[in-house]
Amino acid sequence: MKHPFPFSAIVGQDEMKQAMILTAIDPSIGGVLVFGERGTGKSTAVRALAGLLPPIRVVKDCPVHCARPEDCPDWAVLDDISTHDIPTPVVDLPLGASEDRVTGALDIEKALSKGEKAFQPGLFAQANRGYLYIDEVNLLEDHIVDLLLDVAQSGENVVEREGLSIRHPARFVLVGSGNPEEGELRPQLLDRFGLSVDVTSPTDIEERVQVIKRRDAYENDHSAFMLRWQAEDAALRDRIVTARQTLADLKTPDAALRVVAELCINLGSDGLRGELTLLKAARAYAAFRDDTVLTRMHIRATAALALLHRLRRDPLDEAGSGARVERIVQETLDA
């Protein structure tokens, strides 16, 4: 298996990259939804993200990657409770996945061959403390979406079936990508994503040529290409780690809070979730830039990412909310 395409080598698509970096700095922002046409590098970016994330420290035998032995779920069989570092898990949720596979279910092998009642963890367990990636998220079967909605909100996976009563932590950053032409996303699921990005194919010829060239180099001259870009990825990873530390000391003046609230009211976004996400995203952005105080500039830069998909949308409206957000952001921040 080849290394995935390096994150820093992705040409353009700055908004998408930005959004992903912000969730890496503060996972509680709650994930990214990337919507756009085919062949714009959506899945390339998500796969590249895995190489960018700092490792996490986990208990060796813990099926849900807990940091400390006392956090591990009681049903897990722990033979080895020493800790070690693993890469941040980025788990794929395939479209055709069965409910059992996603939530985990009775371990059929053990049940039938040994007569034991044991739990086989599913994708939610694997994705704990990491990322859960759904390609073509708008084509996901409704019953899987239902499972996802609940878990993404509560951070806990509850399995009550076939005589099992199991719960375990399932906190993950949800990353979805899809092509809006193929179907819409249920508004409830839309809500679960912290940030959303619309990607379009670059229209600049130079940029497009650059994409083709880099792809060609990645395939033909793999090791040299990786050597060149992995260094940049490492630098970016260091920035993310530093930003995580800066984030704790970042000052949030009341004036900034007021601007955020005002912005959300003016836009008429549903609920307080938008406000909270915008605040977190803006703070993460400030930390990434190594600033010490949250200012209007940070809010302006992240407003569209955090709010675009939260506006009460007429289902027949031609998705023209981008311009509206831009206008209101302009008005509110310049007031």
């Binding site: 046409e37 085919r38 062949g39 714009t40 590098g41 379009t200 194919s201 670059p202 497009r208 994409v211 083709i212 792809r215 060609d216």
Partner: peptide
């Protein structure tokens, strides 16, 4: 719009 097409052409 897809960037796969020029890649294939190459």
């Amino acid at each position: 719009t897809s960037l796969r097409a020029p890649g294939f052409t190459l």
